[in-house]
Nucleic acid binder design. Structure first.
Lengths: 205, 205
DNA sequence: CCTTGACCCTCCCCCAACGTCACCCCCTAC
DNA sequence: GTAGGGGGTGACGTTGGGGGAGGGTCAAGG
């Protein structure tokens, strides 16, 4: 058998997190080392390390530690559902960030950011508060409403929009292709700009 | 003159935030109402409301409240720089999320997520801890390293990659176009899948 | 006049997910 | 002996507020 044991420092280095985090996970019962030395030292087994990997993965996906604890004690089928829900949530988040980015761009370009009607100035934040997208999915395990909402939103675009998208996409692809043909280096400003436009295009659909 | 005064509740409703937040902003000196009634009531002027708008805007962009305080007391030129820096940070964040999403997708599709070498299992999290991208930009006001890093990364792709990209992009555009020609609705699974592929493509470049 | 309900105020404690002390033990190496 | 590099347990700080206690204020209605 592989009786590899990690001390807290070793595991921390291995996983790229702080010792403090590991101790924290222990204290909240999320990841208890399966063995304690007589000296009180925490000794983590290979299994513990695997669990830690799962924990960090879910953490990276934006789950709260308490949620991760629940998740890891659930059958895999439920986890699958949860993953789908999380994806919806993540998509919503990404969309939000894209919107912010777009607004940031306009703000960078336009100097006249004074021009705003006094009354509905705050309207831009509607449907925009950071926690809303969390509420959206929370507790509705698996049933990815965000996805359906995305569908609903997409529905609003009619064929004209799609045509416009097509032409824009073609134009962009053209310019990308020509740039590549000309052998421009990948970080040439023109190429970067094109890529940027592309990204913006994807953002707006 | 427009001597419009808002009570804390009015402004909160207007801005779509909690009263508690406004009191918090007051207590940390971020947004002090320019007037206090004899009863102790906070009275916010139109100017305050504008400042609040700025605050919420920067907050939505991911600035910490303390940073916002600094920002709003700076000349506009510096703010421009800060905005650029923030854009770099935001881009890094978005990229990170796209990576997570991609990984989430593979995890959803593959059931055999067991298959992972024990040793470098944690390698996927490299360059990945949530705070790192913040450190990247912090304090180096305006000098968008993230952008330069993006350039560096882009450089690694050679012309073969670009050719591959081109063909893939063309193929995708083709399928999108044909879908649209066929008059498929925007939420048709095929279209959504194509869009998804497109997004993944952008992710990977 | 009093009451009622919707405001507002000021403390003050609570949360997550750790960072950062302080102060201690254990082991090895010089 | 002591210096360094592990490990340990508290306990308090941080961020952006939430929630509640306990009390003053304001406008309307009986």
């Amino acid at each position: 058998m592989n009786l590899q044991q990690y001390t807290i420092g070793e595991l921390a280095r291995l996983a790229g997190i702080s010792i403090r985090s590991l101790r924290h996970y222990d204290s909240i019962g999320l990841l208890k080392p399966s063995h304690r030395g007589d000296n009180g030292y925490r000794y983590y087994t290979e299994e513990d390390s695997k669990r830690l990997f799962d924990i960090l993965f879910y953490r990276a996906l934006g789950f709260a530690l308490s949620e991760i604890g629940d998740l890891l004690n659930r059958p895999v089928t439920d986890r699958q559902k949860q993953l789908l829900a999380q994806r919806g949530q993540l998509d919503a988040h990404i969309t939000r960030l894209h919107q912010i980015r777009a607004r940031l761009d306009t703000l960078i370009n336009d100097e006249e950011n004074q021009a705003m009607s006094n009354e509905n100035r705050f309207a831009v934040f509607d449907g925009f508060d950071p926690d809303q997208y969390e509420e959206e999915v929370k507790d509705r395990l698996g049933d990815t409403d965000a996805y359906r909402e995305s569908c609903r939103r997409t529905k609003k675009y009619n064929s004209q929009d799609w045509a416009r998208y097509k032409s824009e996409a073609d134009a962009l692809n053209q310019s990308m292709a020509s740039s590549m043909d000309k052998g421009l280096s990948a970080d040439d400003p023109a190429v970067l700009e094109a890529v940027e436009k592309m990204r913006l295009m994807i953002d707006t659909w």
